[in-house]
Each structure stands twice: as structure tokens, then as C-alpha cells.
Design a protein around this nucleic acid. Structure first.
Ligand SMILES: [Mn+2]
Ligand SMILES: [Mn+2]
Ligand SMILES: [Mn+2]
Ligand SMILES: [Mn+2]
Lengths: 147, 147
DNA sequence: TCCAGATTTTAGCATTGGCTAAACTTTTGT
DNA sequence: ACAAAAGTTTAGCCAATGCTAAAATCTGGA
């Protein structure tokens, strides 16, 4: 029953699960900076309240998370003022957007309804490795052969 | 700048983010029951230690999580004995496996290396809606047209 | 049988992400 | 100019997921 080409589950699975736990650690930060970048583009400023509204979360929660993002040098903020991205934060936002767009376009290419693609992509994006993202890009570019 | 066919971000984004938070709530439970089902199939019993090993997590963590899964009627266990799935748990495991396989096969079909597909699928599976899963299934079945 | 080593559970702690209600600032309208 | 309204932060709570170290239980030889 053991497939010699496939390494034992006891060895391979922990790798996957560790990756997921790592992904989840950065996931929230990624969504925040991306959202902040969007707000800055759309309206020139990103207030905590706007972030809360878009995330569907309470104001207090946002305040707490922003504090941590500031400690991690992803954003800059002063009391009662709106939020800005540091260079690191902006870079993270741009990478996030890029991934996000590719995943969403891939779903649409597969025949997923645009509204649903938007929603699913928001969760999927954080778990797509660089290699998988490349494969998606290739698929989107060159139509596709496939058996 | 506003696209009339696309609803305002302030209305649509919270939907997506709420979905993600919901997904994350069930994610761990899904991985546990799937893993337990695997162990039961492979070796007839699922010990906490085996689960810990495959998840790459400490024994104590597993004990605590299993207690919660038992409260939620997904598993059954007795002290110092191995773990079994309830009907509900088994059903969840089967659905999980189905989704998991489809996602993994889709990635491979896109040209992702099998080892990487395995890893990425473990995180992606929980964020795929029924509709998207159908699209993936269709794609896998019928080659694909695509522009 | 019985105890030493292996296994499993418990205790206690930390971090993250969420909430509501209260306190504090800032803004606005008269 | 200043009080009411609006907006923001703080305080204090909870649940989930992780950890290590200690206690408890089980088990396989001698
Ligand atoms: Mn995103
Ligand atoms: Mn996201
Ligand atoms: Mn799975
Ligand atoms: Mn999984």
C-alpha cells in the first residue's frame, strides 16, 4: 500500500501544517496593509474606522491590531490621526495585491462567478506559494493545453 | 472612478473577510478529523501522539484540541485510549478529503509540482466555496476551452 | 509481581484576535 | 465660544491555539 515515490505522511504532513500556521500568522497583517493601501489610493487617507468597516470588525479590534502593525514597522500612525504605510508596509501591500489579482483572475478563468471569485480569493491568496503563483500566471497567459 | 457593475468595496469586502474568519474557525477541526480518518484507515487507530507528530505540534496542544472536538461531538475518546470519529466527524472528514483531493488535483493540472501541490492544497482547501469547487471539478473533467 | 521507562494528561503561561462599554478627544453648529 | 455630536482610544473581558515542565498512568521485562 506504500507508494515508494511518495514520502511517508509522517514526514511530509508536518511540513504542510507548519506552513499553514506560518501563513496564518502573516495573513491578518497582509490584509490590513492591502486595505490601507486601497483606502489611501481611493480617498487619500485611511482611518481606523474605515478599516473596521471594511473588515466587518469592531473599532477596538482595529486599534489593537494597528498598534501591533506599528510595532512591526508596517505602518505609521499618531493618536487621532489616520494611518500610513512604511516602505516595508507598502511593499507587503503591493506583493499582496499582485498575488490577490492573479488568484482572482485564475478563478474567473476557471469559470467561477466574479463575485464569488472575489470572495474566495480573499482567503486563498495567503496560502499560494510562489511556485503555484507562477503556474497560475502561466496558465492565465498562454490559454492552456491540458489533456 | 466607480464601476457601476461592481458594488462598493465598503459593502462587499466585509462579506469576504467575515467568510475568512468563519473558515478559520472550522479549519483546525477539519484538519483534525481528516487526519484522524487517515490514521484510522492506515493503522486502525489514531493516538493523540500520532496526530501531534503529523501536525508538527506538541502533545499537550493536541490533548486540548481533542477535548474541544469531543465537546463539539466530532470525536469520541476515553482517557489513555485512542480517538474515534462520530458520525458527524466522519462526514466532515469525508467532505474534507473530497475537497482536498480536488484542489490538489487542480493545482497539479495547472502545472504545480506534486510535492508543492500537496503542501499548498492543505491550506487552500478551507477557503474554497462549493461553487468554486464545482468550477474546479468541471475544469478537471473536461480539459477546458478558455480563450 | 513490581518498578523503571514510556506514554499521556494537567498546570500554567503567552499571544492573537475578537467583543462591549466607558472614557477621552475632536469637530461642528449655533 | 462652547456644548452636543461624532469619532477614537482604553479597559476589561473571552476563546482559541500554541508552548514547556510536572504529575499521573500504563506496561514490559526482570
Ligand atoms: Mn488580499
Ligand atoms: Mn486576504
Ligand atoms: Mn485536508
Ligand atoms: Mn487543511
Amino acid at each position: 500500500m506504500t507508494d515508494s515515490r511518495r514520502p511517508a505522511a509522517s514526514r511530509t504532513r508536518p511540513v504542510a501544517f507548519r506552513r499553514i500556521r506560518a501563513d496564518h500568522q502573516t495573513e491578518l497583517a497582509e490584509d490590513y496593509v492591502e486595505l490601507i493601501a486601497d483606502l489611501l489610493d481611493e480617498r487619500g487617507e485611511a482611518r481606523g474606522t474605515d478599516i473596521a468597516k471594511r473588515l466587518g470588525v469592531s473599532n477596538a479590534t482595529v486599534v489593537k491590531t494597528l498598534r501591533r502593525l506599528q510595532e512591526n514597522r508596517l505602518i505609521h500612525q499618531e493618536p487621532y490621526r489616520s494611518v500610513f504605510l512604511t516602505d516595508v508596509g507598502r511593499k507587503m501591500a503591493n506583493e499582496g495585491r499582485r498575488r490577490h489579482k492573479i488568484v482572482e483572475r485564475l478563478l474567473v478563468a476557471l469559470g467561477v462567478k466574479p463575485e464569488i471569485a472575489r470572495i474566495d480569493a480573499e482567503g486563498l491568496e495567503h496560502h499560494v506559494s510562489a511556485h503555484t503563483l507562477d503556474a497560475m500566471k502561466r496558465f492565465l497567459k498562454q490559454g492552456v493545453r491540458k489533456t
